[in-house]
Structure formats: structure tokens, C-alpha cells
Design a protein around this nucleic acid. Sequence first.
DNA 1: TTAGGCTATGACGTTACGTCATGGTAAAAG
DNA 2: CTTTTACCATGACGTAACGTCATAGCCTAA
Lengths: 249, 249
Amino acid sequence: MANLSGVSVRTLHHYDRIGLLKPAVRTESKYRLYGENELLRLQQIIFYKEMDLSLKEISEILDKPGFKMIQALKTHKDALIAKKYRMEQLIVTIDKTINKIKNNEVMAQPEELYEGLNKEKMLKYRDEAIDKFGKEAIDHAESELMKMSKTDFAQLKEEADENFRCLYLLKEEDPESELVQNEINLHYQIIRKFWGTSGTTDKQAEAYAGLGQLYVTDERYTTMEGKPQPEFAAFLCKAMDYYATHHLK
Amino acid sequence: MANLSGVSVRTLHHYDRIGLLKPAVRTESKYRLYGENELLRLQQIIFYKEMDLSLKEISEILDKPGFKMIQALKTHKDALIAKKYRMEQLIVTIDKTINKIKNNEVMAQPEELYEGLNKEKMLKYRDEAIDKFGKEAIDHAESELMKMSKTDFAQLKEEADENFRCLYLLKEEDPESELVQNEINLHYQIIRKFWGTSGTTDKQAEAYAGLGQLYVTDERYTTMEGKPQPEFAAFLCKAMDYYATHHLK
DNA sequence: TTAGGCTATGACGTTACGTCATGGTAAAAG
DNA sequence: CTTTTACCATGACGTAACGTCATAGCCTAA
């Protein structure tokens, strides 16, 4: 049986033990003898294993017919798509890391963290943020930022600026429209990078909505070309609040 | 430390035990106290974990600098690419399977196996093949085929025919040229689907070369539009033999 | 009869922790 | 000063799917 199918003897033992594939008969000397039915079942098992299903899932599929099976396969397909996506992300990240090492870019120093930004302003923002979100969160965020290289940081800042410009252009749209919400989602992802990803999801949701309030109450954060934009601030606040309540659990 | 970093206390215990991350000090009551250095190291660990590296790999990377690290990352990247590719294949397979189930295509019955082909001829071929490659291989091949649905089988047949036509068009080329060898490789893959994938690689190589001989000695297999093509048969034989000796170990 | 080759069972190893269970500690509450 | 509350530590078992011995029985050809 093992030779015919290509699986190991140990594997057959294992399948026997867990009840996935029992031998047709057991001789008096305890030898496992398999028949044609067992071979066919084994081949099904191998097939589903190739599709990365767990043995538990396989036995559920093999012992039930039709509809359930499609459901299981679809679920599994989604999982595979997610995995594939993850692989892609990781590949990109690795490439970036390799480049960083090659360029001898070391982790940024704390002093450089706010480089390129108005230092005073940032420190004020920092204090305010500590009040709003707690010292732990900010400490965490800073340690996250410190792990980034200069180019990474510059890129993140660029992304954030671009995103902000996009949102500004959408300020006449419905804050709850898909268009706006997509951009808000991007905003949230970027902000998360500044914060790091600590805290539970609902705490994060709360904090994110809170950040929206911050935009409204402090026009410094919604000033375009020197001019305060209170309506834009209100728009942002609505969009962020909607996002927090509807997309962050 | 656990709160700051987001990992569990158990995880810290684990890292301590395996020596990946030791606390800075241990109080008299055995409490683990971590300092800033440990926090930074932990964040590195988390970073590499996100990249799907094993803890062993991480400790190797963190305890050695520069070049080795790039090497490790590249190796890992290749692995990720392979995984991603695998995911893609699996997704396609699952889709096909779902479609098959939806179309209520059951596994083909043995009688239908040679449907569309000249039955007599096929049975003769079958006997001959059993002589050549042994009963086991043919039995296995048939059970493989039986697992296929009708459309699958038709598709495989179509692929085989197309491949055969291509090879015929290449009959004036050098049998060892890359062009021909690529098509021969495809031919081998298709033949393998008929055979299943049982047996060791060298046995398969032997059998594949033997199949070439079969083409030469029996013109039935290289008859185009009713006319035997002995030169084409010889060409095929050379190409297959070269492929078997050079690409099949 | 014996050696070679196959089989069975049992148990430990692998990865990266999760999840108890038991018991000690530290600091706040009473 | 004691209790409560909230952490902390160690130890051990569980997970998925077998691989890898170790020990011992079985079958068959020479």
C-alpha cells in the first residue's frame, strides 16, 4: 500500500490511528491489509492534502457529501488567497530590508525622528497625543518609528501627505461614501504605522475616532497652505468616526 | 514588557528558555526584569517573525551581522516565492474542483475511460503497456484516470493531441535542441498524468525512454492521417531518449 | 534452519507557544 | 496587620502530522 501510493508506512499507521483510513482487514499477526476501496480513499486523501487541507478537514469532507464540501473548499480557498497575499507582502518587505542593509541604513536615532518636521510643533503634538492616547501608546509608537530607517520614514511621511491631499480633494463628497471610506482606510493604516499596532482593536477604534475629534478642535491639523479649513476638519471627523464605528469592530 | 510589546508573557518565558531573549536581571524572587536593550531586541524579533522566519533563524540573524543576514533573507525570500506559487496553484485547483462538483461531474467509470478512443486499439495498447511497464504501473495509471471527471479527461486528451501536433511540426529540428526538448518536457508531463506519478524517478526515466522505443517499433503510435511516419517515430525516440537521460536524473 | 526483509507497537522529537494548575509576591484596601 | 487583588514563576500537557529510532514478531527464500 505504501509503495503503491507513495506515502510512508508510518503515515498509514497514523491514518489508521486517527481513524482517517482503516485497513480492510487485520491478519492474526496484526498486519494491515488494504483493499481497492482503501487505495481509492487514500488517493482522495492525498489529493486533498495537496490542497493543503488538514487531516481533520479531509475526514470531514470524505465522510460527508456535496454541499458541505463546496463550502469547505470555498473557505479554504479564501484562506489560501489570504496566505498568498501575505507571501506577497512578506516578499516586498524582505526586498526592502535587503536594500536597507545594502545601503547601510541604520535604524534612525530618536533625535532624527521628527527631522523635517517643525520640532516645536511636533513636541506639542506629542504632549497632546500623550494626553489623548496615553503615554504607553506614544512610547510604543516612537519606538516603532525609531526602528525605521530614514528613507522609510521619509516614505511614510510622503504617503501620509499624499493621503491627506487626496482626502482634501474629496472634502465635498459624502463622508460615508465608499470613495471616501477607502481613502480613510488608507489614512487609518498610515496612522497605525505611526502608532504601531499596540492595544486592542476597540481601543484603537476609540483612539482613531478620538483623533478625528482632535482634527476638529484643533485647526492646526487641518491647515492647508496656512489657512485653517474648519469644514474640512468636520468632514474628516465625520468620515473617521464612521470608519471607526463601522469598520473597526 | 509583555504589555509594551504586545507579545504574551508565555512567549517571553519561551524566549528566555530558548535563549532568544534573556531578561536584563532576575530579582531575588525570580521575577524577570527587562531593560531598553531587551525591548529593542524583542522588537527586532517581532519584526523578523512577521517575515515568517523561525525563531532559530532569527537568533542566528540577530547574533551575527551583515552578510550572513542578507544571505538568510534571500534564501527565505525564495522560499516565500515558492510558497506563493504553491498557493496560486492550489487556488486554481480548488476552483476547478468546485466547478466539477457544481456540474455534478462524478468520477469517471472504468468503462468510460477509453471513451472517444478506439476501444479495441486501446485495449491492445493496454496489454502491451502492461507487458512493457508492469501491471502495477498500469493499474495505478487507470485508477488515476478514474479519478478524473469527463471534462478533465477530454481536456487532457486535447492537450496530448495538441502536444503531439506540435512535436510533429518540429520533426525536422534537432531532437536535442531546446525547442524540441521543451515540447518533449510537456509531453512527459502529460504522459505522467496518464501514468500517475508512482515509481521512483529513475524507473520513470527508464519507462519514458522505453515508451520512445515503443513509438519506433510500432508505427500505430506515429500515424498521421492514416499514414505511418517512421522518420517522425525515430525523431521522437531520439528526443525522448535524450530527455530521459539528461533531464530525468 | 537461518538470514534478510518486512511488519507492529511504543515512545520521543519537532515548532512556537496556549492553557491550565499550583504556588509565591507585591502592593493596595480594609 | 491582614486580606484582597493582581501579577509572577515553574512545570507539565496539548497542538499537527508525522519522522525517527528501538525492540520484537513474522514471512519467505536459500
